[in-house]
Computed example of a mutant assay.
Amino acid sequence: MSDVEWVDEEAGPVVRPYALTGGRTRPSTTSFELLSMVVATGAAISPRAHLGSEHRRLLGLVSKARPIVEVASEAGLPLGVVKVLLGDLLDHGLILVRQPIPAATSPAQSLLLEVINGIRAL
């Protein structure tokens, strides 16, 4: 077998996703959906909370409310990993999660068309 270099020097350190989650593949809660909104509570991190650098980085990314899918994209991590890490943050009371608004409660298409037509008339 030849010596094949899988990453170049610019790629930086490579950490497997399961190493970030301690081997866990599921979050501690099932309340996470792709469009669930996540925001940091601003609570102090307990000294007993064993949070890694990725947990802290995610906390910085959710200083303003953002959908989970956007957080995963910004962090450059797989969605499953982000859900596990966010589950840890939720367990420690460091984030709040709001479920997406169901489609049935969104405005009717006719109302949206009226608004668009009204804007065009301006």
Results as ranks from 00 to 15, higher is better:
residue 19 A to S: 13
residue 109 Q to G: 00
residue 13 P to L: 13
residue 25 T to C: 03
residue 12 G to F: 02
residue 12 G to R: 03
residue 72 A to P: 02
residue 74 E to K: 13
residue 105 T to M: 12
residue 51 L to S: 15
residue 122 L to W: 03
residue 99 Q to E: 10
residue 19 A to G: 04
residue 82 V to S: 08
residue 5 E to P: 01
residue 28 S to T: 13
residue 57 R to P: 00
residue 22 G to C: 08
residue 34 L to V: 05
residue 116 I to Y: 03
residue 8 D to M: 14
residue 25 T to D: 05
residue 64 K to Q: 12
residue 90 L to I: 03
residue 48 R to H: 09
residue 100 P to M: 12
residue 34 L to Q: 12
residue 10 E to A: 15
residue 49 A to H: 09
residue 67 P to G: 00
residue 71 V to H: 06
residue 6 W to C: 05
residue 64 K to R: 13
residue 67 P to W: 00
residue 7 V to S: 11
residue 68 I to H: 02
residue 64 K to G: 03
residue 117 N to T: 08
residue 94 L to G: 02
residue 90 L to K: 11
residue 18 Y to F: 13
residue 61 L to T: 10
residue 8 D to Q: 13
residue 121 A to D: 14
residue 50 H to N: 12
residue 114 E to L: 10
residue 71 V to G: 03
residue 56 R to K: 12
residue 56 R to E: 08
residue 24 R to I: 00
residue 55 H to F: 01
residue 7 V to I: 15
residue 115 V to E: 09
residue 122 L to Q: 06
residue 103 A to Y: 05
residue 119 I to F: 01
residue 27 P to N: 11
residue 73 S to K: 09
residue 66 R to V: 12
residue 33 E to I: 06
residue 98 R to W: 06
residue 35 L to S: 06
residue 11 A to D: 12
residue 94 L to T: 05
residue 42 G to N: 05
residue 49 A to I: 02
residue 74 E to W: 09
residue 49 A to E: 04
residue 94 L to R: 04
residue 49 A to C: 08
residue 107 P to F: 03
residue 48 R to A: 15
residue 78 P to N: 05
residue 102 P to K: 02
residue 17 P to F: 07
residue 77 L to S: 03
residue 3 D to V: 14
residue 110 S to D: 13
residue 89 L to N: 00
residue 68 I to S: 10
residue 95 I to D: 01
residue 91 D to Y: 11
residue 90 L to P: 07
residue 49 A to S: 10
residue 109 Q to T: 06
residue 102 P to V: 06
residue 83 K to W: 00
residue 87 G to N: 04
residue 56 R to L: 09
residue 7 V to F: 13
residue 95 I to P: 00
residue 55 H to V: 07
residue 36 S to T: 13
residue 78 P to E: 09
residue 70 E to L: 09
residue 100 P to N: 07
residue 122 L to R: 12
residue 100 P to V: 15
residue 104 A to C: 05
residue 43 A to Y: 04
